[in-house]
Design a protein around this nucleic acid. Structure first.
Lengths: 220, 220
DNA sequence: TAAAAAATATGAGATATCTCACATTATTGT
DNA sequence: ACAATAATGTGAGATATCTCATATTTTTTA
């Protein structure tokens, strides 16, 4: 991680204004920083003392279980807070966040914690953010319980396909969707057999958009 | 639902003080109300305009899926907010909440919405509440992905057993834990076979606390 | 208190999903 | 450019979990 200064700082602050999040001047407490691809923003198990607001990039939220199994919980995309739970509760054991691409964040030191926690403007925005987070997590949880993998995969393919082509890394996606690598491949093969997808050098091409939607929409 | 007045109102407001949630006088906007067992606090799909704070009782949060399957998402217990998401976002489609026991709530009408959303004291408390909600949901989600039912059931039995006896209603618990009724019974039978539990008239008695903990603790 | 509804119980067979072992192909670091 | 590492692909057998059918018991309601 390194801190951007001068023109870079100004550039981002103008491109992604953040003043209206606060009713006081945040500038003295704010830095613009850049994480390289693959870098860890939070180490799992640490006690972070910085609030981030991601403005560009993409990252993965991880946690390791007692049994050694690792869950990829969520993809985090701009724009969003990170470390906000740790701001509210003292010294909380945190999950790991690793960038997927180069990522730009505003970092806000906890030296203005008091001010933040007394600022209705900021708190209101944080409430909305946390409310959405809770709602999203809840729906992810219930969908996972209520639908077989086939439907969830169809929904995910729709979501992540680019120009009708699905080409994500199996090793990541099976973690994300919470099934074994083997099973992911089985179901992809099954989709190919049913002529919903076709496997080519360039990725899995969607042949039967309608059928895929049907499988996916059983969810929403 | 009916509204409590006079002595009842005073009794609860003294037993569960709530003034320090707000930096203004909440009394004019507050009612104490009582829901009977089995009554619906929010109908699924409605657009509620009341914020509740449950002070006594227990309820269930439900949602119905497109495929007709119903998920029991969570047990809600005092003390906690209900309808807070709807306060933050306009007119939001809501999940259903049904009481399990007689339940007492403070109800706060949205006529003081502006005041609430400008009150740092209240917002800060709401943030903490929402943060916990999000964190809990996340860990429920990941545990569900990472552990077989056997472990989750062991954890749930530990949590809900009273004096070493587990006696929940199977029909509810299988929904809550997201497995079929049949499978729940299978695993309970298996626990009996392994002499971890013993089935009696009075419920399932825990015989092997140690082994149960072992199964459950693989989770935490 | 009888009838209706809900909850409990169990068997049998089908599917979804996992683990493990191993071979092949891409990608990356030096 | 080559070795090391990561990602892909497949088979076989084991388990976890589901669906459905049906019987019995308990609880609720008229």
């Amino acid at each position: 991680m390194h801190i951007l200064t001068a023109e870079d700082r100004t550039y981002y602050l103008e491109k992604y204004p953040i003043d209206d999040f606060f009713s006081f001047d945040i500038n003295p407490y704010l830095e613009v920083c850049q994480f390289e691809k693959g870098e860890w923003i939070f180490q799992e198990g640490s006690f972070p003392d910085t609030l981030y607001y991601m403005i560009e990039g993409k990252a993965k939220l991880y946690m390791t279980h007692k049994n050694g199994k690792v869950s990829l919980i969520e993809y985090l995309e701009a724009s969003r807070f990170m470390g906000e739970i740790e701001l509210l509760n003292e010294a909380r054991y945190t999950k790991g966040i690793q960038t997927v691409t180069k990522t730009i964040c505003y970092s806000i030191t906890q030296s203005c914690k008091e001010k933040l926690l007394a600022d209705a403007l900021f708190l209101r925005r944080l409430c909305v953010f946390l409310g959405e987070k809770a709602t999203n997590m809840t729906s992810k949880y219930t969908q996972n319980q209520a639908y077989p993998f086939e439907n969830r995969l169809a929904a995910f393919i729709q979501l992540s396909a680019d120009q009708g082509v699905y080409k994500e890394k199996h090793t990541e996606i099976c973690e994300y969707l919470g099934v074994s690598y083997r099973h992911l491949l089985y179901v992809l093969a099954q989709f190919c057999e049913e002529r919903i997808l076709e496997k080519r050098k360039t990725g899995y091409h969607i042949l039967d958009e309608k059928r895929l939607s049907q499988l996916a929409q059983e969810i929403q």
